[in-house]
Design a protein around this nucleic acid. Structure first.
Lengths: 217, 217, 217, 217
DNA sequence: AATGAATGAGATTTCATTCAT
DNA sequence: AATGAATGAAATCTCATTCAT
């Protein structure tokens, strides 16, 4: 009666792959280990997926990457020229967009980690890098509005790219390491506080044309 | 090849391995590619090193990891309870220690990158993670002195760990991507500005027991 | 599926297998593809046949191979010592036998193709080769009657074997490629004209003990 | 000292592959069996060839197929409108061209077999088919000159294609089965006698618009 | 000491065959 | 009887490691 590949098994395989890809990376994960964790045989994985690549596509559909990129851009645009999020009204578009992005990430923890940090060997190997570059452009656009005195050195571009990559990875790590929703949410808020506080301090620092100076540990 | 002194060949192999491990990661680097880049043969690599693992140990001696850890700890301790680095006198111990750490990283770019971001498949696979955990402990110790009102939730511990991992990775990326010393230095300063500004904002935010609020893009 | 009589399903499977074996060869045909084309499941194929080998036996029973061999031999014997088929009377035994062989081949196109050209991997892998060898013996027997001057060199034996293999394969190709009966018949006649004309020329040439000389492109 | 992959081993591998491909076909030959027959290991084959496909390319370079095609065409063109090769003078271009083609085939026995009959699974899978089609066109061009009364039915085209495929295969078989040069030469001459005699008979038969009639066994 | 050819274990993928439903 | 998911052996290919020269 099994006319269709059992959705149950399929989900187990995708789930096992997502966990292993997120933990060890795509290249370092063997199909055999995915099968074992999914409680099936290596050969059977190929009943459901044409190959390791197709399995990856099932774990991380290309559309997902586009969504993450689009929503992140939207969040930056929604800031307008506000220097501090707290200036914005409770019902500002920013809060809606930021909330949606957070929900997306919470709902797809492993995917986010894989996309941002474990995609070695896949078409997304350079995604985090390219994404960070896009974020820099968007962030500098924001800086032009909110901190007009900021000058755009190549070191600044580089630092911003790193900062964003780190922020993204941190979000990914929080999502995958904290299984409970509320704790993950709390961590994401703290990370965002740090990230945005750091950027404000960085832009202020650069705007003063002063030598940058640190504030903490 | 009797013209080439033994030590010279050894250094060439270690150098080639360092570059390739830093660029592609340990697991994705083949011994053959190391030999080719070092201008020797695969077989000869095994005359100098017992195996790929031993080659890795030569590239990244355990002592190096300890040094990075120790010096980073020293830098945090040297902050004392200063909330802003700019409060400290020009000749404060902090500046000495921070300078030394920076020099160490600049002098061993590839090692730092490998240690923090390309150690998949080696004994240091989890180093960055563990290191970040230690940093959290030290950072919370600092927070107790500088921001006594800060409470230690597990979400805070987690966020701090992520923040540090991101900071370390960013430093690593700057070191490996910016070959010129001055540009690397500039980027490292900007990254540190962001990092410390973010932490100050984070601790202040937590200390106010207020909901955390962002400041930037 | 209780509506479908057992024998009906069996025939569908054998038919699908025959078509696929003839088109791609035994080895290159998967049981799954046979099942799919037969409109049933792989598992069910094994309800009717013990394995892929048994399925092949059903498609091409050993008796069929014997029939082809016997009738071909009969056709040669029926020639007697006639050098040209046109010498024979309309109602000569030869015409009966040749007609029967043609009908057999037309009625079992796929089987003939498989037997002569697509049996790689089966017990009939060398059938065409052995058959051709037998044909050579029979043809030399005929030559002794019709062209007594012909001498039996090993090169002649070999050439005859090849000629027969080619002729058989050509028949097979005509049978499988030309679905319409009349066109297949026309092609078979042309092939036979070529084949017999070629043999007559060959024997005449050898009988003259002259260096063989060609006549066409 | 072994700066270059040993030509000796390379030749052994190519030789073993040529023999096995010719005997069993490309698809049915495993790399392991090639290695075993070459007296080396599976893995080592990949030191010399990028993969099974590259090994095939080494056994049968694409240029070889072009040569066979070109020279065969030249042989037909060199016939002009002669109905019988024996009409041509001893020093006619035809004899030169035919001799060259024969030498090529004798020098590359296995290649010819593989090209014409054992290329399943390679880019040459349909070579024999396409080649035969080209030969038909050339042969009909010749027929227009030498036998102007011949009409071109589709059955004739088909029969000619089969005849040529058979002829080519026969040549291939002669080349690979008869190790001694003189015997192979003798067989090839007999095959050509049969082939050309058959064609002459066939064209004459069609030209008479009479029902085709056979002449032999 | 140096070379690079050779080895063999392990990864991905295919498919004949089995088995639970 | 029928289904198609599951299995596992075998094929292609990669690469750390060894070995003859």
């Amino acid at each position: 009666m099994a006319q269709v590949p059992k959705e149950h098994v399929r989900r187990r395989i995708v789930g096992a792959a997502a966990r292993l890809f997120a933990a060890r990376g795509y290249a370092a994960t063997t199909v055999a280990s995915v099968a074992a964790r999914a409680g099936t045989s290596t050969g059977n994985v190929y009943k459901y997926f044409a190959g390791k690549g197709a399995l990856f596509d099932a774990v991380l559909p290309p559309a997902f990457a586009r969504d993450v990129k689009r929503m992140t851009h939207a969040r930056i645009l929604a800031l307008g020229s506000a220097r501090d999020v707290r200036e914005l009204p409770r019902d500002a578009r920013y809060h809606v967009v930021a909330g949606e992005l957070l929900e997306l990430c919470l709902a797809h923890r492993e995917r986010v980690v894989i996309l941002l940090a474990r995609a070695e060997g896949t078409r997304f190997a350079r995604f985090a890098e390219n994404f960070a570059r896009a974020l820099v452009t968007w962030a500098l656009g924001y800086a032009r509005r909110a901190w007009p005195a900021v000058t755009h050195s190549s070191a600044l571009r580089f630092a911003l790219a790193s900062v964003y990559r780190g922020y993204l990875r941190s979000l990914a790590a929080a999502l995958v390491s904290l299984p409970s929703g509320p704790r993950a949410r709390a961590a994401v808020e703290l990370l965002t506080t740090h990230h945005q506080g750091g950027l404000a301090h960085l832009f202020a620092s650069v705007a003063r044309s002063a030598a940058p100076g640190g504030l903490g540990p």
